[in-house]
Amino acid sequence: MARAVSTSRKTFNTAIAGLLGFVMFFPVLWIVILSFKSEFDAIRSPLAILTSGWTLESYGAVQARSDYFKHFTNSVVISVGSTFLGLLIAVPAAWSMAFVPAKRTRGVLMWMLSTKMLPPVGVLVPIYLIFRDLGILDTNLGLVIVLMLMNLPIIIWMLYTYFREIPGEILEAARMDGASLRDEVLYVLTPMAVPGIASTVLLNIILAWNEAFWTLNLTAARAAPLTAFIASYSSPEGLFYAKLSAASVMAIAPILIMGWFSQKQLVRGLTFGAVK
């Protein structure tokens, strides 16, 4: 039973929250604005920037400098590939832990999470050397494997928490109805867990898309995703604000738009299933 809230109180709340929200969002908004300005205007004072004319020239310049779509494709392949590969391995594992819990289940889960605590830098050298010897350095395949392994504990953990909300009786009913294990997972569990799986997929695509340790250290030219594409702007092109802004917008726009459209699933995914 909600209590009546005075309009002035509500207006005050909206103003404060809106202002703070705007401050958080401002850097993103600002680069969008800068990306449509000429290089000359982009370094002027904020007021002058807002009143100056608009142009698309920076986007053209960015695309001319290095093939944006190649990096974009790499990012998509790496993030989507690693997420779905991870899902393939995580669904059965999470099924086991959620529906056939044993004494060790909690320990196994904690151990899996603890591999996530392994600092990447601690194993950078061996992975670099192994990849060099296998010839998968600077390939999408290599990054898919690394990012899948990086995020596997998180995928398993999230699926586990979602699966646990599904009553075991429904799976037992499927078993009584003559479903094999494969049927049970395919026709009953997975469709029921779609919202949870969607959250997991979204979050992991974002984590993989933005991952900037392995993608920077294991790629050079061929497999470089957008993280590396943008890192190449650190100097001296960083001084060309309009181009840097255009490149930044192109790097973050896909994930930003996807994130906003799937906000509901994502909010749930962002909490890693650990908070209700």
């Binding site: 009786e169 037992e172 078993r175 009584m176 109805d177 003559g178 009953v188």
Partner: peptide
Amino acid sequence: TAPAKRGLAMVFQSYALYPHM
């Protein structure tokens, strides 16, 4: 024998219907 092969049908306390079907 696995439950699926026993030729028995069960009605559960929670009904255990498949919510997505």
